[in-house]
Computed example of a mutant assay.
Amino acid sequence: MRRSRLAVYVSSLLLAIGTALTGAATAQASQLAATGGYVALGDSYSSGVGAGSYIAASGDCKRSTKAYPALWAAANSPSSFDFTACSGARTSEVLAGQLAPLNATTALVSISVGGNDAGFADVMTTCVLQSDSSCLSRIDTARAYVDSTLPGRLDSVYSAIRSKAPGARVVVLGYPHFYQLGTSCLGLSETKRKAINGAADHLDTAIAKRAANHGFTFADVRTTFTGHEICSGSSWLHSVNWLNIGDSYHPTAAGQSGGYLPVLNSAA
Rank of each mutant, 00 (worst) to 15 (best):
Y249R: 03
F218K: 11
P251H: 02
N244I: 15
Y249M: 12
Y249E: 07
N241K: 13
A219P: 15
G255I: 08
T252E: 08
V221C: 09
A212E: 14
G215R: 12
T252A: 08
F216E: 13
S257G: 08
R222L: 07
T252H: 05
W242M: 11
G233P: 15
T217F: 01
D220E: 13
H228A: 04
T223M: 04
A211R: 09
S235W: 02
S239G: 11
N241V: 13
W242I: 11
N241S: 12
N213K: 05
A254Y: 04
V221T: 13
G258M: 01
V240Y: 13
H238P: 10
S257H: 02
T224F: 01
G233R: 06
L243K: 06
S239V: 03
H228N: 10
H214F: 05
R222G: 02
T224K: 01
Q256L: 00
T217M: 07
A253F: 00
I230Q: 08
G227T: 07
S248D: 11
L243V: 14
T226I: 03
I245L: 15
S248I: 00
L243H: 09
G246N: 14
H214W: 06
E229I: 03
N241I: 13
T226E: 11
A253N: 03
L237D: 04
G215Q: 13
S235L: 05
G215D: 11
G246H: 05
C231V: 11
Q256I: 00
N241A: 14
Y249W: 15
G233L: 05
H228D: 06
T223H: 09
F216T: 08
I230T: 09
T226G: 07
L243N: 08
G258F: 02
F218V: 00
P251V: 04
I245H: 09
S232E: 06
G259V: 00
V240I: 07
R222P: 00
G259N: 04
D247K: 05
T252F: 01
G246W: 08
V240Q: 12
Q256T: 00
A253V: 01
S257E: 11
I230K: 03
